[in-house]
Computed example of a mutant assay.
Amino acid sequence: MHLERILFDVSSHVATITINRPERLNATDDLTRTELGWAWGQVRDDPDIRVAIITGAGDRAFSAGQDIKATAQGGIKNKVPGSRLHHNVWKPVICALNGMAVGGGLHQVADADLIIAAEHAELIDTHLQVGNVFALEPAVLLRRMPISMVMQLALMSKEGRISAARAHQIGLVNEVVPADRLQQRAREIALSIAALSPATTQASIKAMWASLDVGLHAANDVAYRYVLQHQMTHPDYREGMAAFAEKREPHWVVE
C-alpha cells in the first residue's frame, strides 16, 4: 500500500507505526485513519510481527487528534478510530508518546498496553471546546485512570492538561524518559517482549483486556478459560517449562 500519512517499518519482529504529519501536529484525517487501519491489519495478520510501537513524527505532538480543519471542510467519511482495539489486535502494543496527545489522539494512548512518554509529553482534550462529545476515549481511559482525572481532561479543556509526570504518578504511563531516549527505550522494551512466546503473550493480553468487560467473578472465569485453553492446546506451554528446567533458550511456535 502506498502510504502518505504514516510510516510503517518492520525489523526484528517489531513493527513501528509513525503518524507522519508533523506540519499538522500529526492530526488524523480520513486518509490517516485509513492508513492506520491498514497498518493495524498488518500487525494483526503478519506472523513475523510480534510487537508494535505507535508514535508520532517530530517532537511537538504525538497526535493532535482529529484534523478539525479537514473535517470542517469535508466532514468525516472514515469514522473508524485508527487504534488497535478497534482492529482486534492482540499483539503487544507500546505507545511512544513523543509529545502532546490531544482529543482523538488519546485513542492510541489509551488502547496501548504500555506507554513510554517523553518528559515534555502531555495529554489534552478539546472535544467539548469544538462541540464534540468526549466519550469514546474515556471508555478506555476510565479503566486506566481515576474518573476525576478524565473529568479534568473533559471539562477543563487546555487548562486540564495532564503532564507526563502526572500521568506516570496516577499509573497511566509506565515510564517517563528524556525525549532523546524515547524511541530507543520503546524499542528496547519491544525487543524484550518479542523474545517471549507469541501465542502466550497474545493470549495473556487478550484475556486481560477481555476481563475489563465483565465483573470480578466473570473475569476470573474468562481468565481461567484462556489459561486452560493455552495449557491444553499449545506446545509453547510445555516448551517454556522444559527450556527453563534444561537451562536453554525456548523454541517458540510461530503461527
Results as ranks from 00 to 15, higher is better:
residue 5 R to Y: 05
residue 6 I to S: 05
residue 8 F to K: 04
residue 12 S to I: 00
residue 13 H to L: 00
residue 13 H to Q: 09
residue 15 A to K: 02
residue 15 A to I: 01
residue 16 T to L: 06
residue 18 T to N: 07
residue 19 I to A: 01
residue 20 N to Q: 03
residue 21 R to H: 11
residue 22 P to V: 10
residue 26 N to F: 02
residue 26 N to S: 01
residue 28 T to D: 10
residue 29 D to F: 10
residue 31 L to G: 08
residue 32 T to N: 05
residue 34 T to H: 15
residue 38 W to R: 08
residue 38 W to H: 12
residue 40 W to L: 09
residue 42 Q to S: 10
residue 45 D to C: 03
residue 45 D to A: 10
residue 48 D to A: 15
residue 49 I to V: 15
residue 50 R to F: 12
residue 53 I to K: 07
residue 55 T to K: 11
residue 56 G to T: 07
residue 58 G to Q: 09
residue 65 G to P: 08
residue 67 D to G: 05
residue 68 I to R: 14
residue 70 A to S: 10
residue 71 T to Q: 12
residue 72 A to G: 07
residue 73 Q to E: 15
residue 74 G to C: 05
residue 74 G to D: 07
residue 75 G to E: 04
residue 75 G to R: 11
residue 77 K to G: 15
residue 79 K to Y: 15
residue 79 K to T: 09
residue 80 V to L: 11
residue 81 P to L: 04
residue 81 P to A: 06
residue 82 G to T: 08
residue 85 L to W: 08
residue 86 H to E: 14
residue 87 H to G: 12
residue 91 K to Y: 03
residue 95 C to K: 14
residue 96 A to F: 04
residue 97 L to H: 02
residue 99 G to S: 07
residue 103 G to L: 08
residue 104 G to Y: 08
residue 109 V to N: 05
residue 113 D to S: 01
residue 115 I to Y: 08
residue 116 I to K: 04
residue 122 E to Y: 01
residue 122 E to H: 05
residue 123 L to T: 04
residue 125 D to C: 13
residue 128 L to G: 13
residue 129 Q to S: 13
residue 129 Q to G: 05
residue 129 Q to R: 12
residue 130 V to S: 03
residue 131 G to I: 08
residue 132 N to K: 15
residue 134 F to M: 09
residue 134 F to W: 04
residue 135 A to C: 12
residue 137 E to I: 01
residue 137 E to H: 01
residue 140 V to Q: 10
residue 144 R to W: 04
residue 147 I to T: 15
residue 148 S to Q: 13
residue 151 M to Q: 14
residue 152 Q to T: 15
residue 152 Q to W: 03
residue 155 L to G: 13
residue 155 L to R: 14
residue 156 M to D: 12
residue 159 E to P: 01
residue 159 E to V: 11
residue 161 R to W: 08
residue 163 S to H: 05
residue 166 R to Y: 13
residue 172 L to K: 00
residue 177 V to E: 02
residue 179 A to H: 08
residue 181 R to Y: 00
residue 182 L to E: 00
residue 183 Q to I: 12
residue 183 Q to E: 13
residue 184 Q to N: 10
residue 185 R to T: 11
residue 185 R to Q: 07
residue 186 A to W: 06
residue 188 E to F: 03
residue 190 A to K: 04
residue 190 A to P: 07
residue 193 I to V: 12
residue 196 L to P: 05
residue 196 L to Y: 08
residue 197 S to E: 02
residue 198 P to N: 03
residue 203 A to N: 07
residue 207 A to Y: 10
residue 208 M to C: 12
residue 209 W to F: 09
residue 216 L to M: 11
residue 219 A to T: 10
residue 220 N to Y: 09
residue 221 D to C: 14
residue 222 V to T: 14
residue 223 A to K: 06
residue 223 A to N: 13
residue 224 Y to S: 15
residue 224 Y to K: 15
residue 224 Y to L: 15
residue 229 Q to M: 09
residue 232 M to N: 15
residue 232 M to K: 13
residue 233 T to H: 08
residue 236 D to I: 02
residue 236 D to H: 01
residue 237 Y to R: 07
residue 238 R to P: 00
residue 238 R to S: 01
residue 238 R to Q: 06
residue 239 E to S: 01
residue 239 E to R: 00
residue 240 G to M: 00
residue 240 G to L: 00
residue 243 A to N: 04
residue 243 A to Q: 01
residue 246 E to C: 06
residue 246 E to M: 06
residue 253 V to W: 06
residue 255 E to N: 06
